[in-house]
Design a protein around this nucleic acid. Structure first.
Lengths: 145, 145
DNA sequence: TAGTAAATGCAATCGTGTTGCATTAGTGTT
DNA sequence: AACACTAATGCAACACGATTGCATTTACTA
């Protein structure tokens, strides 16, 4: 679900993470918080023509490092980013929820409300993180069928 | 677990899917069936220098279409391919098992023996497939720690 | 064994990700 | 308010996997 925030809250968020409050970062934040799907770098580029690709790339990277957003790959293997739930901290993500890839609109949905069931790994494997991907039709595309 | 097959069985496999029995395809099959980890295109290239990159790319694609192998992305978003379990058919994969990404050796393991617990999606979402990714240390790298 | 369609090799292109470096813009201080 | 300092940005360039078009070769079939 999209989380509505205003500019002041985004500035606070940047300050909290010791990041300078630049226009590019505020715009990226407001776009990502306004959507309920994950955003790829091409998505950002197509909207923010005036911001350099590399800048967007670095903004996404630093946001991920700081635990503001998390990375998730779509069906094509391209990185998508979504705002983290409150449980995320620097270098310690809690993105162990379900990522839904819509095969029609290509949207990537983070279904935070679902938690993963416990998984027992075979002997020897030691897991540090889990991600569950589902692919299919999102509610909107499902209706259009 | 690696599935041991001989050349005749690979030829049968190709014939079953109406694919011509070429040297390149047989070599790719024998390499993939011999391993218990998924194989990326770079992996294949580094071993089979005499086969063109594009040929390998097309072989992997046609194998995936026919349901012989399935695609899985590693932590970097690069495609890896692993032989399908017997339940796979053309355009209808049953790769709903656990994919384990080793953060040390970068190996991608398909743990077929684990089946996923049932997942209840929110209203409106209609899933056609699930994939569970885990990242951490594989048995070999775990021992080396 | 000759003909045909499929498979391959080569050249080239695209898109995402990545680094280095010069320039610009935030931020804290006087 | 001007300054200094560091972080952030823009630009150029590159790395590399993925992808297409086309000419050539190879595998199958009649």
């Amino acid at each position: 679900m999209a989380q509505v925030k205003n500019t002041y809250q985004f500035e606070d968020l940047l300050e909290k993470h010791q990041l300078k409050k630049t226009g590019a970062r505020l715009r990226v934040l407001s776009m990502m918080y306004a959507k309920n799907t994950a955003t790829s770098q091409p998505d950002l580029e197509s909207v923010m023509h005036d911001i350099d690709r590399v800048t967007l790339y670095r903004i996404l990277n630093v946001f991920e490092e700081k635990g503001i957003i998390h990375k998730v790959f779509d069906l094509n293997g391209t990185a998508n980013y979504a705002v983290c739930s409150s449980g995320c901290h620097e270098h310690h993500h809690h993105d162990e929820h379900l990522h839904f890839n819509c095969t029609a609109c290509k949207g990537v949905f983070c279904l935070n409300e679902l938690s993963l069931p416990a998984i027992n790994l075979p002997e020897g494997f030691q897991a540090s993180g889990f991600t569950l991907y589902a692919s299919g039709l999102c509610p909107k595309c499902n209706k259009m069928q």
